[in-house]
Amino acid sequence: MLITTFQRTSIIVALLLFGQSGWSATVLVAVAANFSKPMTDIAAEFEKETGHRANLALGSSGKFVSQMENGGPFEVLLSADEKGPEKLEQAGLTVPNTRFVYALGKLVLWSTMPDYVDNQGKILSTGDFKHLALADSKLAPYGVAAVEVLKNMKLFDKLQLFFVQGENIAQTYQFISTANAELGFIALSQVLENGKIANGSGWIIPDNLYAPIRQGAVLLKNGAENPAALALLEFLKSAPALAIIKKYGYALAQ
């Protein structure tokens, strides 16, 4: 039998349109700003390994939580804390028993100036800086941790006058990277490249100065039926993903 050109074209179009649909799906993920770099790498690996696609929306966890409470479209939430996912769980917006801690965040005191921040943070008590950037502690877990560090160092009252606050950790980074703030507290993942602080100078804050930043992930109701959403949450616990998470300076939960 001869296949007409029309039939041939139809087959090709059908293959292009539906060829992968049984196997690959797309998941919409809300990602806390501090996790944007590792998550971009993880999403690329995820696509390679599973054929599914992950579309990332980057922003502050608080905003994502309020958007979800008002019918937001996200299927997976990677929050900067455990509070957000817990709140959504209580509101019945998540799939039960899908919540887990995917990473423990690390805080760094960072400046674009080389040799400005010493490795004990003495600059905080001796420095002549005018601006100390940190994320708003009302909105961002990294801001909470920064305040805790300053309180433990007994410097909070003295330095409060110099605070400039970013709405989230990405904006805080922007304040410092444009040198408008001489130094500030951000997520280690934002300045780490190949295991080293790539630019300027920094002090990785010791764990005993702040409570661990336990970053929670959860499957949202929207994604309950989406194979890509389930696969992504599994992938986050896999060895390749954990290696990426560690590479960006996070610790792993247990």
Binding site: S60, G62, V65, S66, E69, K87, K138, L139, E167
Partner: peptide, 8 residues
């Protein structure tokens, strides 16, 4: 206002 909304 934005901060109030974000802090729920």
């Amino acid at each position: 206002i934005y901060n109030h909304v974000e802090a729920l």
